[in-house]
Simulated assay, not measured.
Amino acid sequence: MIWFFLCFLAFALAVAPFVRELFRHPPQVDRADAQGETALLEDGVTHYHWHGPTTDSVIVLIHGLSSPSWVFAGLIRGLNMMGYQVLSYDLYGRGLSDRPRDRQTPEFFLSQLTRLLDEQGLEGPVSIMGYSMGGVIGALFAARYPERVDRLILLAPAGMDYVPGPLLGRAGNSGLFGHWLWQVAGPKTLREAARRDAAGPTVIPDLADRIDAELSRRGYLRAVLSAHKNTLSLQIETVHRDIGRMGTPVLAIWGEEDAVIPLTAIGKLTQWNRNARHHVVKGAGHALPHTAPTAIIAAVTEFLREV
């Protein structure tokens, strides 16, 4: 009898996180009260938002692994004042976009971006700003469609020297057990990280509540783990070398104390693209968009004057 009980207990522990996932709600529940609009693309619904008056200068913002498009809230006004109309959107698996079960590879994200720009009628050149994992997606778009990009701005870009957190790194290398581990312990890890960021300088003081909302939506944890394994962990040397040969202006902005994409990445990107310009924000970590928006706007303003 005791063996039956132990086996039942082990089974219950194994399936509990996946059962809990079934009770999380889909993103469409929250769309009715949200700002922005949705586009039905081939792989699902994408939630997007236009900011500022219509102009010929458009900048597209691509967020990173765990925080959706609201991570750029502190940059919108400054970009509008530069004369940009801003387009932000939620990557699949985050925010109010759908949760397709496809592997979250660079090609998967590139398809979403390309189809969204096509759906919005943006055929001419736009500026791209990619943060962290968004830097991989933006760089791939710039290399694949150079005629559609006039400038590439990278904030703490992934694709080189990425250092994942201990739990995420272990989960990504542990197969099915890793999926279970991330479902069990991932929420606590993400909440603790959000609380730490919210306790420091930030223009998003309710960051922890926003991450809680992400964790309440079905498919978010799966998307984060998949993107970590299939996009963030890649080195994209060929992509950046191609961008360098094409001559697309590139500005990379780094956090001096970034533990996720350390400053060693500057040397690597310099080797790949000698024309890329660099700016280091002193005292900043990885969460540049919401901890150092003023420094980012100043660096972008100077970049626009020079190129």
Score class of each variant (00 low, 15 high):
residue 1 M to E: 10
residue 9 L to G: 06
residue 14 A to W: 15
residue 15 V to S: 07
residue 16 A to N: 06
residue 20 R to L: 13
residue 22 L to C: 05
residue 22 L to W: 05
residue 22 L to G: 01
residue 28 Q to W: 14
residue 28 Q to V: 06
residue 29 V to M: 07
residue 32 A to Q: 12
residue 34 A to K: 03
residue 41 L to P: 02
residue 42 E to H: 03
residue 45 V to A: 04
residue 45 V to N: 00
residue 49 H to L: 10
residue 53 P to T: 12
residue 54 T to I: 13
residue 56 D to T: 10
residue 64 G to D: 10
residue 71 V to C: 14
residue 79 L to G: 03
residue 79 L to T: 01
residue 80 N to A: 08
residue 81 M to R: 12
residue 84 Y to C: 02
residue 87 L to Q: 01
residue 95 G to A: 04
residue 95 G to L: 08
residue 96 L to M: 07
residue 96 L to F: 03
residue 97 S to Y: 02
residue 99 R to I: 14
residue 103 R to L: 15
residue 104 Q to W: 10
residue 104 Q to T: 13
residue 105 T to Q: 09
residue 105 T to N: 13
residue 113 L to R: 02
residue 117 L to H: 00
residue 120 Q to T: 03
residue 121 G to Q: 05
residue 122 L to D: 04
residue 124 G to P: 00
residue 131 Y to Q: 08
residue 132 S to M: 09
residue 133 M to C: 12
residue 133 M to D: 11
residue 133 M to A: 15
residue 136 V to E: 11
residue 138 G to Y: 11
residue 140 L to Q: 13
residue 141 F to L: 05
residue 142 A to E: 10
residue 146 P to W: 05
residue 153 I to Q: 04
residue 154 L to K: 06
residue 154 L to S: 07
residue 155 L to P: 03
residue 156 A to W: 10
residue 159 G to C: 08
residue 165 G to F: 04
residue 166 P to C: 04
residue 169 G to I: 05
residue 184 V to D: 09
residue 185 A to T: 07
residue 185 A to N: 12
residue 187 P to N: 04
residue 189 T to Y: 13
residue 190 L to C: 03
residue 190 L to E: 13
residue 191 R to F: 06
residue 192 E to I: 08
residue 195 R to E: 15
residue 196 R to G: 00
residue 198 A to Q: 05
residue 208 A to D: 10
residue 213 A to G: 08
residue 218 R to V: 09
residue 218 R to S: 13
residue 223 A to D: 14
residue 225 L to R: 05
residue 229 K to A: 11
residue 230 N to D: 12
residue 231 T to D: 05
residue 233 S to L: 14
residue 237 E to S: 14
residue 242 D to A: 15
residue 243 I to L: 05
residue 245 R to C: 03
residue 246 M to V: 13
residue 250 V to I: 14
residue 250 V to P: 03
residue 252 A to Y: 06
residue 255 G to Y: 14
residue 256 E to H: 12
residue 258 D to Q: 11
residue 261 I to T: 15
residue 263 L to H: 06
residue 268 K to A: 11
residue 268 K to N: 12
residue 268 K to Q: 10
residue 269 L to S: 00
residue 270 T to A: 09
residue 273 N to V: 09
residue 275 N to I: 07
residue 287 A to N: 12
residue 291 T to N: 08
residue 292 A to F: 04
residue 294 T to P: 00
residue 298 A to C: 01
residue 301 T to C: 02
residue 302 E to H: 10
residue 304 L to F: 01
residue 304 L to C: 06
residue 305 R to F: 09
residue 305 R to A: 14
